[in-house]
Simulated assay, not measured.
Amino acid sequence: MREQIRAWLDEDVGAGDVSSWSTIPAGSQSRAVIHVKENGILAGMPIAQLVFHVVDPSLTFHALAADGDKVQKGTVIAEVEGNTHSLLTGERLALNLLQRLSGIATKTSSFIEALDGLPVRLTDTRKTTPGHRLLEKYAVRIGGGSNHRFGLYDAVMIKDNHIKGSGGITAAVSAARRQIPHTMKIEVETESLAQVEEALASGADIIILDNIYNYLMKEARLRIKTHSPHVII
């Protein structure tokens, strides 16, 4: 994370913060206050603290709230003290990360509330911002969601392009079974009841119902639970 933060700072600061250098005396000391502008779920406080520490280890970060807290508009969540130049150098990156991660956590939480009482889990995808996957998936968890696979390396997910490229669901699942560790799951994306039936017959561990009408989804769920109740949908 430190390496990632340094790269983000290099992108923003470059050769230096000319606005601060040209207007504020080098030895100036200040106290910065971070407050909330909307109600929501807070996420990213440890990362914001790390940003300021990477910029200048002498800065003091006082956290007044924690990740997962439900915060109200106007709440002061942190105070940061130290060299004014350092504060202004780290300010935007820290706020960008706090805002993005808190936004994800807040949105996730709203979906979790909508699913209250249902026998389901809300999971995320690989459709993350490049360079931010670890943080964005962390924010999903802070909001009450669960993580799906982190990358191409930790599960077999047979999608439409794999099905076309391998000659069908049965061929794809069979080929994968021969080559992956026995502990790894195989997930198959289906777009019709016929594909659901083929995925079940091939021994898929997880079946995705992708772009399927609600009435067909109900029928697919019934068939899956009747044929293979252990299969995750």
Rank of each mutant, 00 (worst) to 15 (best):
residue 157 M to I: 11
residue 57 P to L: 00
residue 179 Q to W: 09
residue 179 Q to V: 08
residue 55 V to D: 12
residue 54 V to K: 05
residue 111 F to I: 12
residue 149 R to E: 04
residue 73 K to V: 03
residue 76 V to M: 08
residue 58 S to L: 15
residue 153 Y to D: 07
residue 59 L to H: 00
residue 129 T to P: 03
residue 167 G to M: 13
residue 117 G to C: 02
residue 93 L to Y: 12
residue 153 Y to N: 07
residue 169 I to L: 10
residue 67 D to L: 13
residue 109 S to G: 05
residue 174 S to V: 06
residue 170 T to E: 13
residue 102 S to V: 01
residue 112 I to Q: 09
residue 149 R to H: 05
residue 53 H to Y: 11
residue 170 T to F: 10
residue 82 G to E: 10
residue 103 G to Y: 03
residue 94 A to W: 02
residue 44 G to L: 14
residue 70 K to D: 06
residue 180 I to D: 14
residue 87 L to G: 04
residue 101 L to W: 14
residue 78 A to C: 09
residue 105 A to V: 01
residue 168 G to S: 10
residue 138 Y to A: 11
residue 169 I to F: 03
residue 88 L to F: 13
residue 170 T to D: 06
residue 42 L to A: 00
residue 166 S to L: 15
residue 149 R to S: 03
residue 160 D to N: 10
residue 145 G to V: 02
residue 147 N to M: 13
residue 114 A to Y: 03
residue 55 V to Y: 02
residue 104 I to P: 07
residue 93 L to K: 02
residue 80 V to G: 06
residue 98 L to Q: 08
residue 168 G to R: 06
residue 128 T to V: 12
residue 76 V to R: 06
residue 137 K to P: 05
residue 161 N to V: 11
residue 80 V to E: 04
residue 77 I to F: 09
residue 106 T to I: 06
residue 46 P to M: 14
residue 146 S to C: 15
residue 107 K to G: 08
residue 45 M to K: 04
residue 63 A to C: 15
residue 168 G to V: 05
residue 176 A to M: 07
residue 122 L to C: 06
residue 55 V to H: 02
residue 91 E to R: 07
residue 108 T to L: 01
residue 97 L to G: 02
residue 102 S to N: 08
residue 42 L to E: 04
residue 79 E to Q: 15
residue 115 L to G: 01
residue 175 A to W: 11
residue 117 G to I: 03
residue 59 L to E: 01
residue 48 A to I: 06
residue 145 G to R: 02
residue 169 I to E: 02
residue 97 L to W: 09
residue 177 R to S: 11
residue 149 R to D: 00
residue 51 V to M: 09
residue 130 P to R: 07
residue 51 V to Y: 05
residue 132 H to E: 13
residue 171 A to S: 14
residue 127 K to H: 09
residue 53 H to R: 15
residue 61 F to H: 06
residue 169 I to C: 01
residue 145 G to N: 06
